[in-house]
Nucleic acid binder design. Structure first.
Length: 312
DNA sequence: AAGACGAAAGTGGTTGA
DNA sequence: TCAACAACTTTCGTCTT
């Protein structure tokens, strides 16, 4: 019964290629060699890679949703109900026999579960599109939600909290950098401590009871997100990843927020190449404060001896 | 004026008895 | 279950560009 998720062994480093160090660029949906910047392959099937977006707003405008419809079968049942509202009631009975299973399902009144699922799925779609998430994440989130409902995990919990938790789990599954807070904000506009707590609890519940294997968050996976968001050249991203690698060898990374780590590495890498980005800008992209970026950056610069001659 | 820096106090999450 | 702990945040005063 445990769901099969395609990417739960994402952490395996050794790929089929000669490249040892593969990172993801979630925005473009690519796997990239960290050493050369060479594109190894598609991480996310069905994502339009012609979409180049550097800010969340832009991403929202440019990403074409509902593009290829091959995933729409995910909404089977529920969507059929929507398409054939007149089939409800006794009059449709005679036709039932010749109908496909799909239509048979649609010809009975909506159960409360159907309605629940319907709202949940459209919520998932809405929030995901606001955040510019790829279609595959919407699918996985939907799948997770369905399974949660089948296992009775939704009972007694708000739809919103399970939806947020499903979306978060799905995006973590694909190495996307969104935080729980991002997702809640995209759904409700604001985030208060209680809802955050509730969603976090739901998330842990889903992960445990559905046996979802969430890959470890790696700082490398944030690098291309930052570079894209701030329109930094690829050379900066490559350098940043090297910096992260060195920092790891020096034991500076354990227990540290990967976003902050990546942010500091990008900041340093940009500086080394004579590009000036403010700590604040970077901090906003990865969802930490300038202080965290600053602390990481100080530690790394000191340990790696990058402090001397950083800019001309 | 804006960015970078560092100190100090507060917050939420994790861990281990 | 609770207390200790590390990491992060918030806030703020000062220095630098």
């Amino acid at each position: 019964m445990a769901a099969e998720y395609p990417y739960d062994e994402d952490r395996g480093e050794g790929g089929e290629t000669k490249c040892k160090n593969i990172v993801t660029d979630p925005i473009r949906g690519l796997k990239i060699c960290a050493d050369t910047g060479e594109v190894i392959g598609e991480d996310i099937i069905g994502t339009e890679s012609d979409v180049k977006a550097y800010t969340p707003e832009e991403r929202q405008q440019k990403t074409h949703y509902g593009g290829p419809l091959k995933y729409s079968h995910h909404y089977m049942g529920v969507e059929a109900s929507l398409e054939h509202p007149r089939d409800h009631g006794p009059k449709g009975l005679k036709q039932k026999k010749i109908m496909s299973r799909r239509l048979i399902r649609s010809s009975r009144p909506l159960t409360s579960m159907d309605k629940n699922l319907q709202t949940a799925l459209s919520m998932i779609n809405e929030v995901a599109s606001r955040l510019g998430m790829p279609e595959i994440v919407v699918e996985d989130a939907s799948k997770i939600y369905r399974e949660a409902m089948e296992k009775g995990l939704t009972r007694g919990r708000s739809i919103e909290s399970i939806v947020s938790a499903s979306l978060y789990a799905a995006s973590r599954l694909h190495g996307l950098p969104h935080s729980l807070t991002d997702i809640i904000k995209a759904m409700k506009g604001n985030v208060d401590a209680e809802t955050r707590r509730e969603v976090a609890r739901s998330y842990r519940l889903l992960v445990r009871d559905l046996s979802i294997r969430i890959p470890v968050r790696r700082p490398e996976n944030f690098v291309y997100t930052i570079a894209n968001a701030l329109a930094l050249p690829e050379s900066v991203a490559i350098e940043a990843i090297k910096i992260i690698d060195q920092a790891r060898r020096k034991g500076l990374t354990a227990g540290k927020d990967p976003g902050g780590l990546a942010g500091a590495a990008v900041y340093l890498a940009a500086l080394k190449q004579g590009i000036r980005k403010t700590q604040k800008e970077i901090a906003q992209v990865v969802g930490v404060t300038e202080v965290t970026i600053r602390n990481r950056y100080k530690e790394i610069a000191q340990a790696l001896g990058i402090e001397e001659e950083v800019e001309k």
